[in-house]
Write a protein that binds this DNA or RNA. Structure first.
Length: 683
DNA sequence: CATGAATTTTTTTTT
DNA sequence: AAAATTCATG
C-alpha cells in the first residue's frame, strides 16, 4: 500500500485515501488528475473492494482506454478487466440494451449519429412544410439537442414558446421525435435521457445499479451536463461514495449543456463532501504556466487558483506570425522537420492544436509536402465519406429494417429505379398514418397510391435484405461481404466515381470497413452486428486507428476540444486570431469566457515548448481576409490592445485584401523568410 | 428517372 | 475553394 501512495503529494494522497463519502477534487491542469483516479481505484481494491463494484465515467473512449491501461499497470490485467470504465454514452447503451423493454425501446434500436440527426431534422422540416430558409437544419438540431440536455421536454418547450421562431422549433422538435420513435432510433442525447427515465421509473433496475456500484468516479466533472449529473446522482445515491474530479477553468462544453456551476456547488448537492485542491503542476515549465495563468486570470467567476510549476524554468513561449495560412503551416512544418532532424525530438512529441476543422487543411498539405508523418484526430473525414456512410446505412437497415434515415439513404444506391418523387410521396403517406416509410410499402392499400413500378422495386429490395435479417454474430465479416454483393454496392461506387483512380480509392474505403469489422470481431467478446454498429457510432475515432497506427511516430493534429486531458512535449497553438480563437460566433453570443478557457486548455497541453502562431491574412469562404491577433495574446502579455484594434464580432466587417490566387502557391521560397517575424512588433 | 450544369451555401467545438 | 443543392435536359 505504501508503494501505491509513493510519489503522491499530500493533497493527492488525501484524494486517494478518502474512500467513503463524497469527494470533490479540484484539479488544475497537469496536477495529476488521472493519476489520482487510477491510484484511487487501485487503492480501493487493495482495501478489499471488488473491481465489479467500481464504476468510472469518462468523456471520451480515449480517456477510458488510458485509464483502464493505467489501472491494469497497478493491479494487473485480470482485475482491471472487471472494472466498469467507460463514457456515459457507452454505459447507457449497455444498460438500455439489457433493459430495452423496460426503457420503452425496441430491442434492435439503432443510434443515429450527427449526420443522421441532420437528415432527420430535414425530414421533419419537410413534413411540416417549413422551408429551410426559415431555420437552418443544423441550427435547429443544435437547439433541440441543447434543450434536451437541459432536461426540457418538447411539450414543455412548446408550451412556453415565446415567439414564432420558438413555436417553429417546438413543432419541428416534436416531429423529429416522432420520426425517431417510428424508425426505432435514438440520438446521442436520448441515450442519456432514456437511461435517466429508466432509472427514475424502474425501481428494480435502479436498485441493481446502486447495489452493484458502491464506488463511483467521474472524470472531467466540469463538463457534466444535466442528464449526466442526474444519472450519477441516482447510481451513487445510496452509498454516496462518489468522487468527482475536474477543473472549472477547463470547462469547454457549455454549448452541449454542460453546467459549470455543478462543480462549484458540489458540496451543496452532496453534503459533507470533502474538497481537495491540486494546484501543483507536474507537466509544464514556468513560462508556459505563467502564460496560462495570465490568460485565465481575465475570467471572472472562477475558483481562484494559481498553478505552480514543479518543473521550474524553461524556454519562453514563442510567437510567430505568417503572411497567410499556407506560410503559417509551412513554417510549422519546417520547424518540426528541422527539430526532428537536428535534435533528439521525435514526431510524436509534437502536437498542432487548432480551433476549427478548416484549419488543419493547410497543415496536412505542408506536412505531406515535407514528408512529415501526422495523424489527424477527429477529422471525421473517413466516416463522412459517402461510401462509408452508405455501407453503414446498409448495416443499420439490415439490423433495424425500419431505420428511416438509413432506408432513405440507400433505397436507390445503386439506382433501382426508385425516384425521388415516389419516395417523397411515400414519406408523406407514412406521416399521415404515423408509420415508417418502409411500412407503407408493406401495406397493400397504401402502396396502391404509388407507382406500381416503384412499389415492386422497393419490394424486391426488401426481399434482398430480408435474407440478412438475422444478426450474424461472429460471422460478421463474411455476412457483410455477402450483403454488399447482394445489393451490388460495387455498382454504386462505379456509378458515382467515373475516374478509375478515384473509384479504386473509394472501393478501398469499403474494404476498410470490412477490416474494421474483422478487428472488431477479433477484439470483442461476443461480437455481433449490433456491437459493431455501436462501436462505430460511439467511438468512431478510436476504432479507426485501432490496430493500425497506434504507435506510429507522427505529429498529432487536433482540435483544442479533443486535446483536453492530453499532453505533449512541444505544442503549436495555431490560428490564434480574432474570429477563430475566440471564434466570431462566441463573440457574437457573448461566450468569450469559454473561449478563454479553450485557450487555457491549449496552452497547458505543452510540457516544455509552446509556440503560438497567427497570420496576417487568411482565406475565408474563398476570399482573402485580413486577420487580427487574438485578444488573448494581449492578455497573455499583459498589454492593452492598440486603439485601432477591432474585436472579431464588432460591426466593422473584416477587410478584404487581395484575391491572391496561384501566386501564393508558387513563390514558396520567398515567403519562407517572411513567415517568421516576431509579432512583438505587431502586438 | 438519371445526369450534368448551375446555383447556393458553408465554418465552432463532440458523445 | 469546396460541397451541397437545385435546375435543366435527355
Amino acid at each position: 500500500m505504501t508503494d501505491l501512495l509513493k510519489g503522491l503529494n499530500a493533497e493527492q494522497k488525501l484524494a486517494v485515501t478518502t474512500r467513503e463519502g463524497p469527494v470533490l477534487v479540484l484539479a488544475g491542469a497537469g496536477s495529476g488528475k488521472t493519476k489520482v483516479i487510477t491510484v484511487r481505484m487501485a487503492y480501493l481494491m487493495l482495501w478489499g473492494v471488488k473491481p465489479e463494484n467500481i464504476l468510472a465515467m469518462t468523456f471520451t473512449n480515449k480517456a477510458a482506454g488510458e485509464m483502464k491501461e493505467r489501472v491494469a499497470g497497478l493491479v494487473g490485467k485480470d482485475k482491471a478487466k472487471l472494472l466498469t470504465v467507460g463514457t456515459f454514452h457507452s454505459f447507457c447503451v449497455k444498460l438500455l440494451r439489457a433493459h430495452a423493454a423496460a426503457a420503452g425501446l425496441a430491442p434492435n434500436f439503432t443510434i443515429c449519429d450527427a449526420s443522421d440527426q441532420i437528415a432527420a431534422v430535414k425530414g421533419a422540416l419537410r413534413e411540416l412544410r417549413i422551408g429551410e430558409a426559415s431555420i437552418q437544419p443544423s441550427v435547429l438540431q443544435g437547439r433541440i439537442s441543447l434543450m434536451k440536455n437541459k432536461l426540457m421536454s418538447s411539450d414543455g418547450f412548446l408550451a412556453s414558446a415565446a415567439d414564432d421562431q420558438d413555436e417553429l422549433v417546438g413543432r419541428a422538435w416534436k416531429m423529429y421525435e416522432e420520426h425517431l420513435r417510428r424508425a426505432r432510433t435514438v440520438d446521442f442525447d436520448d441515450l442519456l435521457l432514456f437511461t435517466l427515465q429508466l432509472l427514475r421509473t424502474n425501481e428494480r433496475v435502479r436498485a441493481e445499479l446502486e447495489q452493484r456500484f458502491r464506488y463511483v468516479m467521474v472524470d472531467e466533472y466540469q463538463d457534466t451536463n444535466g442528464p449526466q449529473y442526474e444519472i450519477v446522482r441516482l447510481v451513487a445515491g445510496r452509498h454516496k461514495n462518489l468522487c468527482v474530479v475536474g477543473d472549472d477553468d477547463q470547462s469547454i462544453y457549455g454549448w452541449r449543456g454542460a453546467d459549470v456551476t455543478k462543480i462549484l456547488s458540489f458540496d451543496k448537492d452532496f453534503r459533507g463532501a470533502k474538497v481537495v485542491r491540486l494546484e501543483t503542476n507536474y507537466r509544464s515549465t514556468e513560462p508556459i504556466l505563467a502564460a496560462a495563468n495570465a490568460v485565465i486570470a481575465h475570467n471572472p467567476d472562477r475558483h481562484a487558483k494559481t498553478l505552480r510549476s514543479a518543473i521550474g524554468k524553461g524556454e519562453d513561449v514563442v510567437m510567430l506570425r505568417g503572411d497567410d495560412e499556407v506560410s503559417e503551416a509551412d513554417t510549422v512544418a519546417r520547424q518540426i522537420g528541422e527539430l526532428v532532424r537536428l535534435t533528439r525530438a521525435q514526431f510524436s512529441d509534437f502536437a498542432v492544436l487548432f480551433r476549427t476543422q478548416t484549419q488543419p487543411r493547410a497543415f496536412e498539405e505542408q506536412f505531406r509536402l515535407r514528408a512529415i508523418p501526422y495523424v489527424l484526430i477527429g477529422g471525421m473525414s473517413f466516416f463522412d465519406r459517402k461510401e462509408v456512410r452508405d455501407v453503414l446505412a446498409y448495416l443499420k437497415l439490415a439490423h433495424n429494417p425500419r431505420d428511416e434515415v438509413a432506408f432513405l439513404r440507400v433505397v436507390n444506391c445503386p439506382p433501382r429505379g426508385i425516384g425521388r418523387g415516389s419516395i417523397d410521396k411515400a414519406v408523406e403517406i407514412a406521416t399521415q398514418h404515423g408509420i415508417s416509410t418502409v411500412q407503407v410499402f408493406e401495406t397493400p392499400e397504401l402502396a396502391a397510391e404509388l407507382p406500381a413500378a416503384t412499389v415492386d422495386a422497393v419490394r424486391a429490395f426488401r426481399n434482398q435484405l430480408s435474407v440478412f435479417a438475422a444478426d450474424p454474430g461472429e460471422a460478421l465479416v463474411g455476412w457483410m461481404r455477402q450483403l454488399l454483393e447482394a445489393v451490388n454496392y460495387r455498382a454504386e461506387v462505379d456509378r458515382a466515381y467515373l475516374e478509375p483512380k478515384l473509384r479504386e480509392e473509394r472501393w478501398q474505403g469499403v474494404l476498410e470497413i470490412l477490416d474494421l469489422a474483422e478487428n472488431h470481431v477479433r477484439r470483442t467478446r461476443k461480437a455481433s452486428l449490433s456491437t459493431f454498429l455501436e462501436a462505430l457510432t460511439l467511438d468512431a475515432e478510436d476504432s479507426r486507428d485501432d490496430g493500425k497506427v497506434k504507435h506510429k511516430d507522427a505529429v498529432t493534429l487536433m482540435t483544442l476540444h479533443s486535446a483536453k486531458g492530453l499532453e505533449f512535449e512541444r505544442v503549436y497553438l495555431v490560428g490564434v486570431e480574432e474570429g477563430i480563437l475566440p471564434h466570431a460566433r462566441s463573440v457574437a453570443e457573448d461566450t468569450v469566457e469559454e473561449e478563454r478557457r479553450l485557450m487555457y486548455v491549449g496552452i497547458t497541453r505543452a510540457k516544455r515548448h509552446l509556440t503560438i502562431t497567427l497570420t496576417k491574412t487568411r482565406s475565408k469562404y474563398g476570399t482573402r481576409v485580413e486577420s487580427h491577433p487574438s485578444r488573448f495574446l494581449y492578455e497573455m502579455k499583459g498589454e492593452k490592445p492598440p486603439k485601432d484594434w477591432k474585436a472579431a464580432g464588432s460591426a466593422a466587417p473584416a477587410v478584404r485584401v487581395t484575391e491572391g490566387g496561384q501566386r501564393t502557391r508558387k513563390k514558396k521560397s520567398s515567403k519562407r523568410s517572411a513567415a517568421v517575424d516576431l509579432p512583438h512588433k505587431d502586438l
